[in-house]
Design a binder for these strands. Structure first.
Lengths: 342, 342
DNA sequence: GTGAAAGCGCTAACAT
DNA sequence: ATGTTAGCGCTTTCAC
């Protein structure tokens, strides 16, 4: 026996509009009109229909409605890395807020940084007839999307540019951000500056590396070269990498970490060091202020919001060439990046 | 003129199964069988159909399929607070991973801590015929859900218990966690212990407050009483509250903050203090190790995973009384909670 | 191994 | 102001 209010009685088939109409003593279409608050329904009829609906516990079948209205849902898909990474969750949060304003809902999926899975997810979303698809792509090429865009499903690339297909994108000024970090450290008199970066084949990392190098070149500095470390993919390896750097005979006097995970690892390695090197990290993070960590900051939530906005404009019928929105960066000096050369 | 590979040509209506069948020269049903890899299709026929589908850029219409199959989607809804809060995003990440194993997809929505909006979102999800609904509820009562559960949509409450309706739930051992934090501080010799808590009307906070008080009572300690601060709802107010506490004539020698946001605020207030009080925070967080912050930890991702598991069992037909899974906590000593009494 | 007909629950078009 | 008919794109009978 179920307790009163139990949510676990036997599943009862949901009532349909036909049943509501029958109970209210009106035709199907009248019931539809009444529940959708369309004009041309007598107030009394409307009330009778709504009472019948309440009595039966009727709830509109969105699937049937969507099929009839043209097989297009109110869903927008987001394919990204793990939401447990604060960068992705900040992006998702920005997207969700923007979409909600337009009555759209966000469906999220994690690509596990696997391009095969990513493609599979794209297909699944398209089958579900999402109105738009936002992707923080893991795949290196996206040719297979070209045919889709022409079928009216707008794509927006987030954080990483499209490759092999023209599509809207929202990107961070990676190169500029990296240059300003590098200049910041050069300005402090540093010459032996280490760069710890993630997978160099991903565009954002490549741009950060290139930006950093451009600054060094402009300053006529080549002393940084022995301290370049790329393809460091998680915090643990970043920690080990930084420890190794500091154990060198001529250790770097400053370190630039190219994303939030790497900064975390570096902070662990620098912990308890009496005379830590200067440190600037790409991506701001919670408690960076308390830790006194200087960063290249940007607004990930705004990035999500802009991506959702671009998608919404396409959904609303905007046509025209692909657009790219660039999110600016700024150096926030909190101490770690201003440590003197030792 | 669109560039080749442009995603923004005119929207072309998607081909239907009927068109694929016509092109392949078979009947609608045979095409359906072939694409769904059902038995009883000649290999050659199957190939012809799939070629036709590729040629047309056919993609199954999931909406039509779902309608025909009984108007139930492969979506599972999650209604929670802002994903920008790492607690919620960790929960979402755990849910998403678990659901994916079963071919289900996660749809997220933010309730903005507003019970009216929450109810609206519940209705929207039900209209979309989600298979299950996971909620970190903001509303205080959930009676209105009772009628829904009986219609076969399983509800799982996450982090906060259902009130007014029987439903599955995944909860943290808030009381036990708070007691162990309190005991930890008492064990360090502290007597004037401040408790900084969020909205006391939310169950998790109330339980943490009650657990803390129970420990104090058991230890015969009443000295903490002047230092109780509740309804501190964000990091900024937590920072101010802690500053105020420390400015008292007899400041507390230890502080217990009842969630991650409040701990963040407290850390800001304690920053640069020469002799900070002891601090233990509820909820673990990134970089707590670097900051040396002692916490009551629990596994938010596991919480999401358990919630998804409960939901999936209901979806798969499990009936029976509502179950509650309790996620255990543990104190992680990192220094801040072990500071001596001064 | 293949096909014809019916219908999921709703809304659009066209009566009345 | 209300009702009738048709049909969205698919899967499910049931027949061949």
């Amino acid at each position: 026996m179920s307790a009163p209010g139990s949510t676990h009685g036997a599943a009862v088939r949901r009532p349909t509009l036909t049943q509501v109409a029958a109970l209210a003593g009106v035709s199907l279409k009248t019931a539809s009109r009444a529940l959708n608050r369309e004009p041309n329904v007598a107030p009394d009829t409307g009330r009778r229909v709504r009472d019948a609906a309440d009595l039966l516990g009727y709830r509109l079948n969105g699937i049937a409605r969507e099929l009839r209205r043209g097989a297009t849902s109110t869903l927008v898909g987001l394919i990204s890395g793990d939401l447990a990474n604060p960068f992705y969750s900040a992006v998702a949060s920005g997207i969700e807020r923007e979409l909600r304003q337009h009555g759209l809902q966000l469906v999220t999926a994690n690509n596990d940084e696997d391009s095969g899975l990513e493609r599979h997810l794209v297909e699944a979303f398209l089958e579900r007839r999402v109105r738009a698809l936002l992707v923080v792509p893991s795949a290196d090429r996206h040719d297979y999307l070209a045919v889709e865009g022409n079928r009216g499903v707008p794509f927006v690339f987030v954080d990483r540019p499209p490759n092999g297909v023209a599509a809207d994108a929202v990107l961070i000024d990676n190169s500029g951000g990296a240059r300003s970090a590098a200049d910041h450290l050069l300005g402090g008199g540093h010459r032996r500056i280490a760069l710890v970066a993630d997978l160099a084949r991903k565009a954002p990392q490549r741009e950060r590396i290139d930006g950093f190098m451009a600054s060094m070149r402009a300053a006529g500095n080549t002393e940084w070269e022995p301290y370049l470390r790329t393809d460091v993919h998680d915090a643990r390896r970043a920690e080990a990498t930084v420890r190794d750097l500091l154990a060198l005979p001529d250790p770097p006097t400053a370190i630039f970490t190219a994303n939030n995970r790497l900064t975390t690892g570096a902070l662990r390695a620098l912990r308890d060091r009496p005379e830590p090197p200067a440190l600037v990290g790409f991506d701001d993070f919670d408690l960076a202020d308390v830790l006194g960590t200087s960063v290249v900051a940007h607004d990930a939530t705004a990035m999500g919001r802009e991506a959702a906005r671009l998608a919404y404009e396409r959904i609303s019928g905007h046509t025209g060439p692909a657009r790219t929105v660039v999110i600016s960066t700024s150096v926030i000096a909190r101490g770690s990046g201003e440590r003197p050369v030792r």
